[in-house]
């Protein structure tokens, strides 16, 4: 690890002032579960690391009706899991956090960090850049081993998968992010926070180098809402999912009045599936309907050569998440 300056501001204004307006010069430290590995692997080389854990207003969880849920960016995954209101009203979020099966990571890793962590693409982590190109400009993902890479949104040049555990569930619930920067506070839907970079200069999320995510705001649960997250993960021990799906359905009687279906770990961004949502709208959820929605979700998926199996896994994740949400089907 290279030497860097370490600062620990106590207000978000101080933090933002300490952050550079150029990517790479400074890095934000929250739980550190990703940043430390990036530093040790020499993937990031900041001259300054800004610790945001001492900023009081980034902490805490509050829930009320009709305001909904507010999660501070430095709330840990374990704090999220331990919160009774979240467990009661947002099961898809809790199930997603539970998929992080390491107590160490749950105790250190933060909600904001989960959203802002960098991809696990093994070419990126070996220093070949976010778009994983060799010196001649060819994509190592396409030439090499892409068994864990994207099956959706993989037209290129980005082929990594978004690693966030919580984002699909947050998007399914219609959550928004509050971001603080030199020009003050702005708010965007979580769904619009993520984007597929088109060049090595772009990041995989809508954040300026001197902005920090401060809060996550989740709308109150609608009457008749059911929700779930299903992860396909090889190991029970800490392991990256191969495909996940989070769904939030609002039922009117037995019928689906509105639906959100968001896949994880299958595309460079958390992947909302309007096709799957359309397949559910107005229907009574049966096994056939869930299956039709699952098929629709992967209709546009394509293999990069070694990840065809992930199409099947994504399909299963969607179907099982829908079935789990309405109270049936296989559970982990």
């Amino acid at each position: 690890m290279r030497a860097f300056e370490y600062v620990s501001p106590t207000t978000k204004e101080q933090a933002v002032a300490l952050l550079s307006s150029t990517w790479g010069e400074t890095e934000i430290l929250a739980g550190g579960t990703d940043l430390l590995a990036l530093l040790k692997d020499d993937i990031v080389r900041p001259r300054r690391v800004v610790n945001i854990k001492e900023i009081a207003e980034l902490r805490g969880i509050s829930f009320s009706m009709p305001a909904g849920l507010r999660i501070g960016a430095t709330v840990t995954l374990q704090e999220l899991l331990d919160h009774p209101d979240i467990a009661r009203h947002y099961p898809a979020l809790v199930q997603a956090a539970r998929g992080v099966t390491s107590p160490q990571i749950r105790n250190m890793g933060t909600v904001g960090g989960d959203l802002c962590q960098r991809p696990r693409c093994w070419y990126f982590r070996s220093g070949f850049g976010l778009l994983a190109r060799d010196e001649t400009g060819r994509s190592l993902v396409l030439e090499g081993d892409n068994r864990y890479h994207a099956i959706l949104g993989n037209e290129g040049p980005a082929y990594f998968v978004n690693p966030s555990s919580l984002a699909p569930a947050l998007i399914a619930y219609g959550a928004r992010l509050r971001i603080f920067g030199p020009r003050g506070t702005r708010e965007i839907p979580v769904e619009r926070f993520f984007r597929i970079p088109k060049s090595e200069a772009e990041r995989e999320y809508d954040l300026q180098p001197n902005e920090i995510v401060t809060e996550i705001l989740v709308p109150p649960p609608s009457a008749g809402m059911v929700s779930a997250t299903y992860e396909v993960r090889q190991r029970e021990a800490l392991d990256w999912p191969l495909a996940t799906a989070s769904v939030a359905l609002v039922l009117e009687g037995q019928r689906v009045r509105s639906a959100r279906v968001v896949l994880g770990h299958v595309a460079p961004i958390p992947w909302p599936s309007p096709e799957a949502e359309r397949a559910l709208l107005g229907k009574t959820v049966s096994e056939e309907v869930a299956q039709a929605a699952a098929n629709a979700a992967v209709q546009r998926a394509r293999s990069l050569g070694k990840n065809e199996y992930k199409i099947q896994l994504a399909r299963v994740a969607v179907r099982r998440a829908i079935q789990q949400a309405v109270g049936g089907g296989a559970r982990r």
Partner: peptide
């Protein structure tokens, strides 16, 4: 096959049973 390197020289993708 592309780089000839081991792609998973870590405890993340070199998976051991828990």
């Amino acid at each position: 096959p592309a780089t000839g390197r081991m792609l998973n020289p870590n405890m993340e993708f070199y998976k051991l049973a828990g």
